[in-house]
Every structure is written in C-alpha cells, then in structure tokens.
Amino acid sequence: MSRQTVRSGDPRKVSAELFTLTYGALVSQLVKDYENVDEVNKQLDKLGYNMGIRLIEDFLARSNVGRCHDLRETADVIAKVGFKMFLGIVPTVSNWSPSGDEFSLLLDNNPLTDFVELPEGQSNLEYSSILCGVLRGALEMVQMEVNVWFVQDQLKGDNTTEIRVKFIRRLEDAVPVGED
C-alpha cells in the first residue's frame, strides 16, 4: 500500500495539468490545421465563447453570488470568484478607464501557459485567447455585451499578462417570437 501512496502525487495538480496539456495539444493541432494564425485565434476564441455560455451556469450554481450592481463589482467577482474557482488564480483588477467602462485583469501567472514557449514566427498567435472567449460568452449570458482582448502577454516577453475588458452595452432580454 505504501507504494501506492507514493504514486498518487497530487491528484488536483495532475487534473490541472490535464487541462493545460490538452489545451496546448489543441493549440498546436489548430496551428497545424489552419496555417493562418488569425484563424487559429478566432477558433480558440469561439471555443471559449461556447464554453463560457455554459460555464456561467455552473459558476452561478456553485458560487452563490448575487446580482452585481455595477461593473466594478462584476470585475471583482470575475477576478476573485470566477478565476479562482476555475483556474485557481486571482488576477488583479486595475487600469480602469476614466469613464469606468473598461478595466484590465492582470495575471501574474497564467496556468494555461505553464509548459509553453512560443516558437519563433508565432508572434501573432494569441495563445490564451480562449480566456477572452470564455469571458465574452459568460458575460453575454448575464446580459452584458463586452469586448475582451489581450494587451500584454508574458508569453511574448511582456512583464505581465493583461486582459482588457470593455463593456459595450446591456443586452435586453429577447422574448421569443409569438410570446409576450
């Protein structure tokens, strides 16, 4: 039995690695498949969007957070609850625009890029653009249209990883045709 305990390692860590490694394998597969880097970025973002629109339900069910009253609160919940729950990190919210409709999430370390080095000639690849998609998808399901993009990325030699989120508008509930 003693031998088995040695083997098990930290299951939690391994399952995080499973995600990181799978993501890496997917990106490299897409780079091979599409040749065009912009298309790869788009696909990753789309994949994230599709995840986001489902993930939000899981998030709400699990986290028990109530309605957010302004964007600052939303930003805090995204960073301190959302990121923490799914990726185990807490980004810093900062760089608010004067009008208060734009903020940045600063990631000290990005679990998606744990084992990653970008080869030369891939400087246009937004490796973690799945995160943008997830945020966009998840927020859309709570009636917020946002733009999300990478400003800085440690993978590309920047000091930090910065995700910019810009609030566009509140979506009105769309009532299905024929219903009041």
Binding site: T22, L55, D58, K84, M85, L87
Partner: peptide
C-alpha cells in the same frame, strides 16, 4: 478549484 468541470466543458467543445 473546479477545474475538472472546466476540463469536461473543454473536452465537449
């Protein structure tokens, strides 16, 4: 951390 859910959703996608 709920990363196993993350992986499930990710795999589906």
């Amino acid at each position: 951390m709920a990363d196993e859910v993350l992986f499930e959703f990710f795999h589906m996608e």
